[in-house]
Design a protein around this nucleic acid. Structure first.
Lengths: 194, 194
DNA sequence: AAATAAAAATACATATGTGTCAGTTTCTGC
DNA sequence: GCAGAAACTGACACATATGTATTTTTATTT
C-alpha cells in the first residue's frame, strides 16, 4: 500500500471515530462513514470490509493516544497523590462527557462481537490502568502518603468503581457531585482524604 | 382486551425474554420472536409494534420478580449481616452468569433508545437497591454490626462496584475469585469482614 | 501526449427486516 | 348450527444495508 493510501486510511479512521462518538457502534453503517468522509461506497470498501474493521482501527488509535496523554502531563516533582488526583480528574471528565465519548460505542462493539473476554482491548486497557494505579499506590505507601495493605486489590477495586460510574453515566445518568463523592471514597480508602 | 389476550401477551413476553437472554437486544428481530413463539408475523404485530415495546414488558416482568425474590427469602431472625450477605451472594450469581442473563440486553436497550437518563427502569432499580442497602447498613450500624458514617453514600458506592463488576463480566470477563475479593472489600468498608 | 496502472464512483444484485392488509380460521352468543 | 366478532395468517410492498462488478476518473510512466 502506497504512502497516499496510508494517509487516506488514517483519514477514514479519524473521520469514522467522530461518527462512532455521535452514534455509538451498532447504529453506524458503511453509508454513514462514506458520507462523513465524502467518498463513495466502493471507495470505502477498497480500504475496509465492514464497520467492525474500521472500529477496530479506531480502538487502536484510541489506546495509543490514551498512553500518550497519561505519560505526557506528569510534572517532574509530582507526588503520588498529585498523580492519582490527576488521573482521577481525567477519569471524571471521561465519565461526565456523554455524547463526546466512545464509551458506549466500545461496549456495543464488544456486545456485537460476542465476547473474546481474554485478550481484548478493553481488558488490556483495564489491566494496564489497574497496574498503573497499583504502582502509584505502592509508591504512595512507601512515601507515607497512603495506607494500604493490598495495592493490587485496591487498584482493581478503584477500576471497578470507575467502570460502574462510566456505565451508569451512559445508562442512568449521573451528576458531578456523585462522581466527586465516589472519588473521595476512593481516596479515603487509601487514607488520602484531605 | 379479553382474558385470553392477556394470557397470550404474557406468553409472548415470557418467550421473548428467553430470546433476549440468548441474543441480547439489538440482534433480536420480530421474526426471531415470531419463531420462538411459533405464531405468525401478523399475529405478533397485533400485540406489539416492535421489539422495544416487547423488551419494555420484559423489563417490567423482571423488576416485579426481582422485588419478589428479595422480599421472599429473608428469615425472621436474620441479622443485617445475614441479609447483606444474602444480597451479595445473589449479586455474585447475577454477575457470574453470562449467557443466561439480561444484563447485556438491558444495556443495549438503553443505548438504542438514546438515554432518558431520569425516570428509566435501570435508574429506578439502581436507586431502590441502593435504598435497601442503605437501610440495611443503618440497621447494622444501630446493632453494632457495621461501622459507617455515611450510609447513603456507602450504599451507592457498593452499587457502583456491583455495576462495574457486572459490565466487566460482560465485556472483559471476570473470575469468581475477583468477585469474592470485591465483595470482601465491600464488607471491610463497613467494618464487617470476618 | 499516449499507454498503462491505480484509485474512485456508480449501478447492480442480493439479503434482511419492517409493517400492512386481504383473506381465513376460530371463537362466541343466540 | 349459524351469524357476527375476534383472532390469526401468509403474502406483499417497501425500505435499508451489504458487497461486487463495471465504468469512469485520475495519476504515472515512457
Amino acid at each position: 500500500m502506497g504512502d497516499k493510501s496510508v494517509q487516506k486510511k488514517r483519514y477514514i479512521v479519524e473521520t469514522a471515530r467522530k461518527v462512532f462518538m455521535e452514534k455509538g457502534f451498532k447504529k453506524v453503517t458503511m453509508k454513514d462513514i462514506v458520507e462523513a468522509c465524502d467518498i463513495s461506497r466502493g471507495g470505502l470498501y477498497l480500504y475496509f470490509e465492514n464497520t467492525s474493521q474500521i472500529f477496530a482501527e479506531v480502538l487502536k488509535l484510541e489506546t495509543e493516544e490514551a498512553d500518550d496523554v497519561f505519560s505526557g502531563s506528569i510534572a517532574e516533582d509530582a507526588t503520588a497523590v498529585d498523580i492519582l488526583l490527576l488521573f482521577l480528574k481525567e477519569q471524571k471528565k471521561e465519565i461526565l462527557r456523554r455524547k463526546d465519548t466512545l464509551t458506549q460505542a466500545i461496549y456495543e462493539y464488544y456486545f456485537e462481537h460476542n465476547l473474546p473476554k481474554r485478550d481484548n482491548i478493553l481488558k488490556k486497557q483495564f489491566d494496564s490502568a489497574a497496574k498503573v494505579i497499583e504502582k502509584l499506590i505502592e509508591t504512595g505507601v512507601d512515601n507515607g502518603e497512603f495506607i494500604c495493605d493490598d495495592c493490587a486489590g485496591t487498584a482493581r477495586n478503584i477500576m471497578f468503581v470507575l467502570e460502574g460510574l462510566k456505565i451508569s453515566a451512559q445508562t442512568t445518568g449521573i451528576t458531578s457531585d456523585v462522581v466527586d463523592q465516589e472519588l473521595m471514597y476512593i481516596l479515603r480508602g487509601i487514607g488520602a482524604d484531605d
